[in-house]
């Protein structure tokens, strides 16, 4: 199927007695944002973990651009074009924002066993890193240590890191959390523009953003996809209203 960039087939994942992922199958097509919504503890982050490779599914398969990646490592998957942002941001705190993004550029160029040339004035690393930061409207923070950033800004740095990888697929785990209304609006705009380049699997609690951005929505409850469709279908689904929307929208 050439119109599918990423597809998950019958994924299952157990943590002891807890079934965190139940027979999940879904896919991501070029040019779309596929939103994954569901209450806390539904297994959304666990699913992202399995796609990115930090968790191994018990059964099922994951195919990226026609290639089976189920048994590959996190780094191998990233090199094949999986860009990811974490729900709890995972950056090198003492380093500057710039340096965090530059490592992604370096990874993309594939030359990490170079021992001699200093990186601090390496334009081939710096320029793409700054471009990614500019896209996230974070260029003015390039020299700030990550430790000094707000939670929202850290999320944005993560997205910039993911962008710097020139990914084929973006997995974003609650990128709007902690951004504030202004930041959310800006990021919503950015993602809307971005999806034409990179399809995005988006986990988000901000339902306004989800309904505005998502071409398709899957609803995850207790590890299983209980509903799937476009915004209108999901809004109208009584099961969804009860299981999820009823709790979070007023």
């Amino acid at each position: 199927m050439s119109d599918v960039v990423l597809s998950l087939a019958h994924l299952n994942k157990r943590f002891g007695a807890l079934q965190a992922t139940r027979d999940v199958s879904l896919d991501l097509r070029p040019g779309e944002i596929h939103a994954l919504i569901g209450p806390n503890g539904a297994g959304k982050s666990t699913l992202i973990g399995q796609i990115a490779g930090s968790l191994r599914p018990d059964t099922g398969s994951i195919v990226l651009a026609g290639q089976e990646i189920t048994s590959l490592s996190v780094a191998q998957r990233a090199r094949l074009g999986l860009g990811r942002s974490f729900q709890i941001s995972s950056l090198a705190e003492p380093l500057s924002v710039k340096r965090n993004v530059m490592i992604a550029v370096q990874a993309l160029q594939g030359h990490s066993f170079r021992f001699w040339k200093p990186v601090h004035r390496d334009e081939s690393l710096l320029a793409p890193a700054m471009a990614a930061l500019e896209r996230m409207a974070l260029a003015h923070r390039a020299d700030t240590a990550v430790a000094e950033l707000s939670h929202g800004e850290r999320r944005q740095v993560e997205v910039a890191c993911a962008l710097a990888l020139k990914p084929r697929v973006l997995l974003l785990d609650e990128p709007m959390a902690g951004l504030g209304p202004e930041g959310s609006a800006r990021l919503t705009e950015l993602l809307e523009a971005l999806k034409r380049e990179v399809p995005i699997l988006l986990i988000e609690h901000d339902m306004d953003a989800v309904f505005r951005l998502a071409d398709r929505i899957s609803v995850l409850v207790d590890g299983a996809v209980i509903a799937h469709g476009d915004s209108a279908t999901i809004r109208a689904n009584p099961q969804v209203r009860e299981a999820y929307l009823g709790e979070t929208t007023c």
Binding site: A52, S54, S73, V74, A75, Q76, A78, R79, R84, F86, S90, L91, A92, E93, P94, L95, N100, I103, A104, Q106, A107, L108, S112, C161, L165
Partner: peptide
């Protein structure tokens, strides 16, 4: 500092 970040970028630690 953060080997998860390194791996996520595509460099095996």
């Amino acid at each position: 500092l953060n080997d998860t970040r390194l791996a996520t970028a595509g460099i095996a630690p």
